[in-house]
């Protein structure tokens, strides 16, 4: 028996929004410790890694580990039927070929359930090596989304250069070029608005804008985003999900032809 309950369907809706642009379907691996998802996008350029810890749920029970392959468009249709403040419970029997989503309104006057067929997905898991990153940038997630959206208008590739002074995002294309520089702030009063940089050595890497835009669909999950970079390894874009877990996106850097 698997059962996981969240008092706010809004969180699950946001999690789904954060992955469904990159993934058509995904396997949710459920165990005692929580729910995990690891999947590459269709073109195998980026990787999504989601962890929802069991202790972050309002109720969590997983008698036997199970993998639930879900079509994310179908899951999205179902979650649209929930109000943000509904309680949501995800249920499945051991070895089941369906999963059930139960939505309960705050006053319990409306209870709905939606059963969805599970899929057998042949998904391969990748081993992600531990990396000591040369640069770790933390900034407001809304600011990152804004920069990516603004610059993507002018080119397909963004160059991110990080030094101890700050981080520079640059794009060039047919129209011309654009640069956004963010200085490290010492804004101790408003930590949420600060830009902080931990740098071992400077890094310059190029990335496809379209993937960064997809990653920023996670912005509603967290006020902060963390970018971790080292030369010649994938960028990690991480959003913490308060008291529940995190979503990390890995993106292979572009290299010179």
């Amino acid at each position: 028996m698997f059962e996981a309950r969240l008092t706010s369907a809004a969180t699950l809706k946001k999690v789904l929004e954060a992955v469904k642009e990159l993934l058509n379907e995904a396997s949710f691996d459920c165990s005692d410790s929580g729910i995990q998802l690891q999947a590459m996008d269709n073109s195998h350029v980026s990787l999504v890694s989601l962890t929802l810890r069991s202790d972050g749920f309002d109720k969590y029970r997983c008698d036997r580990s199970l993998t639930m392959g879900m079509n994310l468009a179908s899951m999205s249709k179902i979650l649209k039927c929930a109000n943000n403040d509904d309680t949501v419970t995800i249920k499945a029997q051991d070895d089941a070929d369906t999963v059930t989503f139960v939505f309960e309104s705050k006053k319990q006057e409306k209870i709905s359930d939606y059963e969805m067929k599970l899929m057998n997905l042949d998904q391969e898991h990748l081993g992600i090596p531990e990396t000591d990153f040369s640069c770790v940038i933390r900034m407001p997630s809304v600011e990152f989304a804004r920069i990516v959206r603004d610059l993507a208008q002018f080119g397909e590739t963004v160059l991110i250069c990080c030094t101890k002074e700050g981080v520079k995002f640059s794009v060039s294309g047919d129209v011309g070029s654009a640069n956004v520089k963010l200085a490290q702030t010492n804004n101790f009063d408003k930590e949420e608005e600060s830009v902080s940089i931990e740098m071992q050595e400077p890094v310059s890497l190029s990335f496809a804008c379209q993937y960064l835009i997809s990653f920023t669909k996670a912005t509603p999950l967290s006020p902060r985003v963390q970018l971790s970079m080292s030369s010649n390894v994938p960028l990690v874009v991480e959003y913490e999900i308060a008291e529940l877990g995190y979503i990390r996106y890995y993106l292979a850097p572009k290299i010179e032809d």
């Binding site: 590459m40 073109s43 195998h44 350029v45 980026s46 990787l47 391969e124 898991h125 990748l126 081993g127 992600i128 090596p129 590739t157 190029s206 496809a208 390894v233 994938p234 890995y250 993106l251 292979a252 850097p253 572009k254 290299i255 010179e256 032809d257």
Partner: peptide, 13 residues
């Protein structure tokens, strides 16, 4: 520029 796959950085389990 060339876009490599993520699998060229991470090993398959």
């Amino acid at each position: 520029m060339f876009q490599p796959a993520i699998t060229s950085f991470f090993t398959r389990k």
